[in-house]
């Protein structure tokens, strides 16, 4: 019996949290340290290579899309509760709309960008 619709947000939060935990550290190291300092094989993130990889394969687009959007829902759920925890409970409906709305907006923006590659 569905007593509350929290489960959908909590599922997205959990999935996003797992994606961020597993994949973000290495990605940050790549875009923040390895590539800028030229520590990886010659320019692996160059336009030709990345553009080809993303456009020739829909699975690459899908995975990339998931990696970008799921952690947004992780942020939305967690940040919503953070704001409530620091005493903003009276605004909890507005906070929920802004947080989940923000994640949904980010998801739509991502969908548009990937659609247009």
């Amino acid at each position: 019996m569905a007593k509350s619709n929290e489960p959908i947000w909590w599922s997205l939060f959990s999935a996003g949290g797992m994606v961020a935990a597993m994949i973000f550290p290495i990605l940050i190291i790549i875009t923040g340290i390895l590539v800028p300092f030229g520590l990886a094989s010659d320019d692996p993130l160059n336009f030709e290579r990345i553009h080809t990889a993303v456009t020739q394969n829909n699975y690459v687009k899908l995975i990339f899309f998931i990696v970008i959007t799921l952690p947004l829902f992780h942020w939305a759920h967690r940040f919503r509760f953070t704001l409530v925890d620091v005493g903003l409970k009276s605004m909890s409906t507005l906070i929920s709309i802004l947080c989940y709305g923000g994640a949904i907006a980010g998801t739509i923006a991502s969908a548009i960008v990937f659609w247009n590659i």
């Binding site: 019996m1 007593k3 509350s4 929290e6 509760f81 953070t82 925890d85």
Partner: peptide, 18 residues
């Protein structure tokens, strides 16, 4: 379990926990 879900799975139940 279903009888307890009224309390447990409500907005004032587990879903308030951070």
């Amino acid at each position: 379990r279903d009888a307890r879900q009224e309390v447990i799975a409500s907005h004032d139940g587990i879903w308030e926990c951070t």
